[in-house]
Amino acid sequence: MIELITFLILIGVGYFVGQHFESQHYASIKAREKQTLHIPLMTFGAKQTLPHAHEAQMFVGSVVVANDYFKTFSASLRNLVGGRMVVYESLIDRGRREAVLRMKEEAIAWGASQVINIRFETANIAGQQANQASCVEVMAYGTGIR
């Protein structure tokens, strides 16, 4: 009985607090994306000659994000029937956009006019147990030129 109550409390806290944090995070991401819109990001540029570039430096942005209790639980239910895991999609999306923003903000602070040849990398750093919540590291790296 006590276990059930703790479980329900954790689900409730995970749902409400998690959702609150997520919407807050998305609001901050959207605001910062708008702010940094003037610097173009590209996934190409490795082979081009860049006559307007005088200096180049590598920038890395990374973030470790975790799912909340409610999402972990609903994902384990989703595992039974298969299909789209919407709860995980928003987690990775948040992480990736945050990582790109960190890289971009660093590049802007350095004075970059654009960031080229961006690459992404994702790693699962959670424990191997199946019941453990997933915890994903997302990183973005590219070369800023000025």
């Binding site: 995970g14 944090f21 995070h25 470790v64 994000v65 975790a66 909340d68 999402k71 945050e98």
Partner: peptide, 23 residues
Amino acid sequence: MAGFKNIVGGELKGYTELLQEAR
């Protein structure tokens, strides 16, 4: 700390720093 964070979700700052340092 990460265990607590797994209840509410979001960024795990400690791990982010750890991995950045390692990188």
